[in-house]
Every structure is written in structure tokens, then in C-alpha cells.
Design a protein around this nucleic acid. Structure first.
Lengths: 361, 361
DNA sequence: GTGAAAGCGCTAACAG
DNA sequence: CTGTTAGCGCTTTCAC
């Protein structure tokens, strides 16, 4: 008796037998192949339903040489920016029929290296990677050939497609906004000792340029380095700034978590925001829209970033498939997948209470 | 010339040829099988390195009948609670050698149904699912046999393993805390019209019980229904409460986002927290530790929840494997995988400024 | 429009 | 300790 067994090992063969057709025909139906008689299709479909047949993806992947699964590697899922980014990436990937698995690196060098070296083997078709520690050099010595798209500002001019926003310009906008508000002692929180951190470097440079353009001084004690970009670091840095003989009247924080932490510190010290100190963040995470006060921030277009990343991966996969079709072509030594693409997504400045405050904090 | 081609199609066969051994031996080395001469192992390893061999996971999965990939299905990754939960699940899964792919349902019935019906085919070994809309009935008619563990309070006594915290007890603790603080008009935000929402139901019940125990009235206008559990809903509900002729002096919000929204509303209306109104949340998300004021909240042990879920899945997989070994056993009609397990993880109450405030908000 | 057969890369018996 | 062989379930030429 052919009741559905517990393991439910129903394969094409069983369906074919039940429908009285060949496996090929069942396969055709399953894959929506056009040239099948309506009558045959119906019979096959019925057999599929009766047997609760589900195609074995492993077998299909093996045969097709593709899995339609990609990996998204990022530091931590519970950093709001990455959570929001992940959401967008998963959505964008879904639209082209891909499933996304997540690799959390915790921003650790070893783990980022593992991801780069293709820890996933041939399980994934592509990798979208937002590194923290990696530099262009690490990418150069990568051996894994899985299509790769880099996210964020950590690596420029590396040998891979790259999506980011114009950090220099955005930083200028952020600090420029504070200047226009009439602030004179504008601090920055988020500098990083690590030389590979393009993020900190670029944002700081934009900040200083905006200051210079306004003819404002940039005393070194107003540039606060931090270990990580978490709330606690922002709070600690803000406390340090407030301990200065001449505290700042504005702060540009290199991400929203730092800013949220700074807001917290300011509140603890009884400093009014924005009256005494104005605060600008970066990322436009949900929290900043409901914080007290709400946070003025650089707002990168995350959905656009996600779509671009997925699009890049898709074209890489396409060109890979082409390559393997024209196998013995002469220009085998064309060195890699062509020139890596560098694209910047849009950004805006979301002006909220932390700089133009309605009610004082 | 055997340079590594762009497609890098290196299989066991190639490695075997280069090392002058059989595929079996290479396979043994790759899988860390013990009984291989050190000398042979070294030669094979060298061939692997030279060829940059990476095992084809699709083939391995097909053969083994397991992928070591599981799916985590949840509403939205950018809801902080789920982001934190996801982080923990991925960590716990990693420890047993599993990779996690994410399915976002957006809390939509259709999507949750798809997940339940095994949209992933045989790609995944198991599913950890945190549903919003699904009830026990939906689970009963599930045909897919992929091992499943349910998270959260939505479904009790369903036909699947289930991990949650004791909602009734926790809700009593939350409201009890407000009672002890001497509050007399304690509101609740987060009731849900949806009948399937056990979450709302249980938390409300616990709340009312605590009130009753304290001999306090429970006027219906102090129980606020909301559409979703987002900040905006919390803010709107709080505004409604403040518009009451007799506003509350405390609020128990059924999650932290609602509470954060409520905090925001209170600030906009110039109401002091906790002096005028005390606020308790639920989830203990990171934001609440840095909000102004910081948020008192029910703190579920997320790591424990994650480990338990992974553990349940692991034992389900084990018993499945056993089943298929003793194929023609007589008790084939033993109906499913035994009695579903129901486990509650630990929780605590994190007392912060929103109820015992240092400086007033 | 449909069928027969080969084979993707790997692992698991079973020999030797 | 290592080699040979079969086959996981699917797609894909190629015939018919």
C-alpha cells in the first residue's frame, strides 16, 4: 500500500509511475515547461498532489550547478543598521528567486577571513559581504571564486563590486548642517585607530573639510576615537567631551548608535538637546525616529543599496554562465570577471529634533 | 595544462588523480576519517591545496540526505526582538554545525502558510518558526514533514515542539511591580482583537489577575488594543490614554516597541516618567537600555530560547534518522514524532528608570 | 509531445 | 588501510 511513509521519500520516479508517464514529463510539469498536453499535465499534477511530492532541491542543485541561495555576511544582526539592511537584502533577493543565509562575523578578522575564503563551499551562488576589518589586500589574495559584492565603506578600489554611499559628501552635509545652525565648537565621535577603517577616515575627512570651509577651528580634543560603534561607546565619548574645559555645542556621530548613546549621556548630565548641544547621527535607523529627542541623521537609501547589491550579483552570475558556455575561448587569461564596479547609492539628511528641536529634551 | 580554470570545477576525481589515490581515500581525508596513513593524508592534502578543491555541498547533501541547513522564519528582521533572537539562533545553530537561512513572513498569513507548507522543499533539515497569525488548527493540517520547532506564545498545545516563556507569570510580575510602586490606575497597551493571538490574551490575563489580586479596579478604557506591536502603535495608544478624563499613572506595554512609542508620546505631552506615569515593557531589547528614560521590562532569556529550539530540532532529526533505519518496524502507525514538547525558558524583570527613575524624564 | 539514458559530485557498502 | 562500484534525485541531450 502506497501510503505516504513518514520519511516521505517521494521522487519523480514515483510520481511518474503513478501518472503513467516518464520522469521527463513529470520534470517538465514541475518546471513549467510549455509543451505538455493539458491532459497530461493534469494527470501529473494530480499524482503530485496525491503523493505530496516535493522536489529534492539538493539533487536539482547538483544537476543545475546552482542553488539559488546566496549568503549575506555581516557583523551582527542585532545592530539595527544591519538588521534593516538584511531585511532589504532578503527582500530584494527574494524578488529574483534567491534565498538568503546569514553569516555573522561579529566583526572578527578570523571570521571575516573565513567568509572570504568560501567557508560555504559550493553551497551558495554568491556572497554579499559587509566587512569591518578587511582591506583591499585581503581581497587581493582571495582564492575563492564565488561571486562577491561588497557593502559599505570599508574597502574601495578592491577587486570586487562595491556598493556604498558617498561618505565624504554625506559627512560634509552632516557637519555643514550644524555649521548652518550657528554652532561653533563641533565635535566628532567615531574616529577609529584601525587604519583599514575607511568609514571613520572618510567621515572624519568630510567633517574637517566642512569645518575648514566654514572657517571654523578643529581642535583635536573634539575628535573622539571609539573602539566600536555601539551605544556604550557613544555614551562614553560624550561624557569625555562634556568633561572638557570647553565642551562642544554640537556633535557629529559617525553612526546612530553612537548618537543614541551620546543622547543618553547628555540626558544624564542634564544637558539640553539641541539647545546646549546639537547631535547628528548616521544610518537613519528606526530607533532614532522615536528617541527623545528624535535624531537628525544621514539617511542612506538602504533599499537601493540592497537592490544594487543583488543586481550586481545577478550580472556576475550571468557572465559566469556565459564563460562556461564558451569554454575554450581564446581570452581565458582575461583575468577575472572584468573591471569591478563601484556604485554609490543615494542618501539624504533627515532633520529632526536633535538639531532643530521642537520641545527641548 | 591544469591551471585552475575560472569555473574551478575541481572534483574529488581530480584530486584523486593528482594524488595518485582513489576517490574514496580523498573522501576519507576530506571527512577526517581516522584510518588513513599520515603519508597518504599528506599527499592528498597537498593535492587538495594545489587544486584549491572545495567539496560540492549539493552533491554531499544529496548523498547524505541532509544539508545541515535550517530555516528561521520570523516576521521582520528589523524588529529588534527578532533581530536579537535571530542572532542567538544563528549562534546556537552554528555550534552544532548548522547554517541558518532566514524567511521573513512580515506577519502575513499567506506567507506564514507558505513557510509551514515547506516552501523550501527538501533544502532544509528543519524549521524554527515564530508565527504571528497561525493557530493550532493551521498546524494540524500541515502536510510537510520537515522537523519543526515553534517559538513564542502564539500557539500552545499544537502538534509541534514549542519554546516560550511563561507569559501569564511574567505579565503578573510586570503589573505586580507597578502595583508595588503604589500605582493605582494601571493601563495596558497591546491587546489584540485577533482571536489567535495568545500573546495578547495571556499577557492581558496576567495583568488583570495582578490587578485583581491587589484589589485594584480594571476599567476597560485602560486596556488599549493595537493593530501591530510597533512604536507608532504604542505612541498612538498612549496619546489616547492621556486624552482620558482620568489618565493612568502607569502603563504595562506588551512589548518594548510599544513602550518606546509610549515613552515618546509621554515626552511629547510633557508628562514626566516615572513621576507622573510609570512604564513597563517586554522583550528587553537593546534600545530600552539606552532610551530616555531607560526602560523597565520583562527580560526573556533569548539565548536559552535559541538553544532550546536548536536542541529540540536536533533531537527530532535524530529520531527521524532512527526511524528510517528501522524501516519496516511494526509501529509505523505511531502517528508522528511522539508527544510534542512544551518548554518555557527563564525570564526576569529588568528594573530601570521608567519605573524607579533617577532623574526625571 | 514524450521517453530512455547518461551523469552532476559525492558517500557508503563491500571487497581486497 | 585503500580501491571499486552503485546510486542519491534531478535535468538534459538526443531520439522517437
Amino acid at each position: 500500500m502506497a501510503t505516504s511513509s513518514p520519511g516521505e521519500r517521494v521522487s519523480l520516479k514515483h510520481v511518474a509511475a503513478r501518472a503513467g508517464v516518464s520522469v521527463k514529463t513529470v520534470s517538465n510539469v514541475v518546471n513549467g515547461y510549455q509543451h505538455v498536453t493539458a491532459e497530461t499535465r493534469a494527470r501529473v499534477q494530480q499524482a503530485i498532489d496525491e503523493l505530496h511530492y516535493r522536489p529534492n532541491l539538493a539533487a536539482r542543485n547538483l544537476r543545475r550547478g546552482r542553488s539559488n541561495v546566496i549568503a549575506l555576511a555581516l557583523p551582527e544582526l542585532d545592530l539595527p543598521y544591519f538588521a534593516e539592511l538584511a531585511r532589504s537584502v532578503i527582500k530584494a533577493a527574494e524578488e529574483v528567486g534567491w534565498t538568503v543565509l546569514i553569516d555573522q562575523t561579529d566583526g572578527l578578522v578570523e571570521r571575516e577571513q573565513l567568509v572570504l575564503d568560501g567557508i560555504r563551499g559550493r553551497l551558495i551562488d554568491g556572497l554579499i559581504f559587509s566587512p569591518i576589518t578587511l582591506g583591499a589586500a585581503d581581497l587581493e589574495r582571495r582564492r575563492d571564486t564565488t561571486p562577491l559584492v561588497l557593502l559599505g565603506e570599508r574597502v574601495y578600489d578592491g577587486p570586487a563590486d562595491h556598493v556604498s554611499i558617498d561618505n565624504l559628501a554625506a559627512a560634509q552635509v552632516a557637519t555643514g548642517h550644524l555649521v548652518e545652525l550657528g554652532r561653533r565648537r563641533i565635535a566628532a565621535i567615531g574616529d577609529q585607530p584601525r587604519p583599514t577603517s575607511q568609514t571613520a577616515h572618510l567621515r572624519l575627512r568630510g567633517h574637517l573639510q566642512a569645518l575648514a570651509r566654514a572657517g571654523l577651528p578643529a581642535p583635536p580634543e573634539l575628535v573622539c576615537p571609539v573602539e566600536r560603534y555601539h551605544r556604550a561607546d557613544g555614551a562614553a565619548a560624550m561624557h569625555r567631551l562634556l568633561d572638557l574645559p570647553e565642551p562642544p555645542d554640537a556633535v557629529f556621530c559617525f553612526n546612530d548608535l553612537l548618537a543614541l548613546g551620546a543622547l543618553r549621556a547628555l540626558h544624564e548630565r542634564g544637558v539640553r538637546v539641541p539647545d546646549d548641544v546639537a547631535v547628528v547621527g548616521w544610518d537613519d535607523v528606526e530607533d532614532g525616529r522615536y528617541s527623545t529627542p528624535t535624531l537628525t541623521t544621514i539617511s542612506p537609501d538602504k533599499q537601493q543599496i540592497a537592490s544594487l547589491a543583488v543586481e550586481f550579483l545577478a550580472t556576475q552570475l550571468e557572465s559566469m554562465q556565459l564563460e562556461s558556455k564558451q569554454l575554450e575561448s581564446e581570452q581565458l587569461e582575461s583575468e577575472g570577471r572584468g573591471v569591478p564596479r563601484e556604485v554609490t547609492a543615494d542618501f539624504g539628511l533627515a532633520v529632526r529634533e536633535s538639531t532643530v528641536g521642537a520641545r527641548a529634551g
